[in-house]
Write a protein that binds this DNA or RNA. Structure first.
Lengths: 235, 235
DNA sequence: TTGAATTATAAAGATTTCGTAAAAAATCCC
DNA sequence: GGGATTTTTTACGAAATCTTTATAATTCAA
């Protein structure tokens, strides 16, 4: 197995949520994923899956279509109302209609059971990689700030700036959306998860610490601009 | 087949490059793609494929792994040095090593021949949608004013204008209904909510601040026109 | 032309939102 | 286990925005 971007995983493990009712499959996936350095969260029902996806904001979801409580198609639609990271469908169904419907409803990929674990892992790597650098940019430069998305290193005028994990996540999200106003809800959802959408105070605190680290004059920020009542904008 | 962003496709067909040495497969793909509103370019060898991809910059590449002149894996690596839109691999090879290698070298997807055309088309739609997602800003232009509804930013003669949340909401609503007379009640309902329908004074105040910000001469407004007794009209 | 209705503008409260500091809780790392 | 780091809470003053009030300007019909 070759990992093109080893560092990412070592510094900050990617989290995968498994939504599947079969314990054997979950166990199989868990073992394979954990030995490949992913953090794993599991749900055995659709409802539980929705709750965990909201509270964990995983980097990828493996979703079984044949769940006991709710159709996987419905779960997919519900997830896609807010979750925009990869969702890979696992299914015993090999009929074209199901596959097309899932893909058109926002599934990133569709594998039929039984699947080959090596292939699944490769598809997971591929999907996560694509979602992490949406424009294949490895380094984002915004004025005097340079963010290496692969190494998770931030430099200002070639000096490395030490950021905590959350500070980095926030700055990287800002940088990926340079110039756009990002709402409080969006920022909270992307970084903390759906259930944190109302915790705007978190944002104030972390924007504050970020400004202290990257702004020349934190009282007159030039990079992270407040859009009162709406959110923040990075430039 | 559902196309969430119909206009884009109609205005500007997505272009697909087929790199495959089998004429029957190329023909089959061409017919299917063209009837689904894609523009198609074809190459029968790897070398030709590389040249056409460079000269056409297609929105997606369908790449056969079993080419006569050059291994598809090599073509993939060469393409990925500069091409960052989706590449879907088509192959008679169904062995895991090939699939993993292709995905780890930047393939977006991997289908084994014979494939189901409906599924392939769904995977193509999905891949193109994801790759275009990053640049789907909707921008409304009205004379010297430009409103980016995604970035939530208003520019006048390329200068960013700072608006409060309510000012922006009002202007965006005006711009979405350019030329139409919008009644007081409608504006109040849309922005403040149903219970504020009678608070016309709010409107006067906010139209006033907006005019100060976007009109050359606020005493003689050219954009936000008063329709006495009815409402306002934006032009 | 006049005057009532409507609209515009300014400015003073009222309220909401923001920023900062610092304590408490949780997590990480040796 | 225990110290260091990071995240989550809490509290409060500052800033920005919204609402209200007062008054001036404009419109339009008789």
């Amino acid at each position: 197995m070759n990992f093109p971007k080893t560092q990412i995983w070592e510094m900050n493990k990617a989290e995968v949520l498994i939504i599947d009712d079969e314990p054997q499959i979950r166990k199989l996936l868990q073992i394979n994923l954990e030995s490949n350095d992913y953090k794993v969260v599991q749900a055995s029902t659709g409802k539980e899956g929705l709750i965990l996806s909201a509270s964990h904001a995983p980097d990828l979801i493996l979703l079984d279509i044949g769940l006991p409580d709710k159709s996987g198609h419905d779960i997919l639609k519900e997830l896609r109302e807010w979750y925009n990271k990869p969702i890979i469908i696992l299914s015993v169904q090999d009929n074209e209609i199901d596959i097309i419907s899932a893909l058109d409803n926002g599934a990133t990929d569709y594998l039929t059971k039984p699947f080959r674990t090596g292939e699944l892992l490769a598809r997971i790597r591929s999907a996560i990689k694509r979602s992490q650098n949406s424009e294949n940019d490895i380094i984002i430069t915004c004025g005097d700030i340079e963010i290496n998305l692969v190494a998770r290193i931030v430099k200002q005028n070639n000096e490395v700036i030490k950021l905590t994990s959350t500070e980095y996540n926030l700055l990287a999200l800002f940088a990926k959306n340079e110039g756009k106003v990002l709402t409080h809800q969006y920022l909270l959802r992307e970084i903390w998860g759906y259930t944190f959408q109302t915790e705007t105070q978190y944002l104030r605190v972390f924007v504050g610490t970020l400004r202290k680290k990257i702004e020349v004059n934190p009282n007159n920020p030039q990079h992270i601009i407040t859009e009162s009542g709406v959110g923040y904008r990075f430039q």
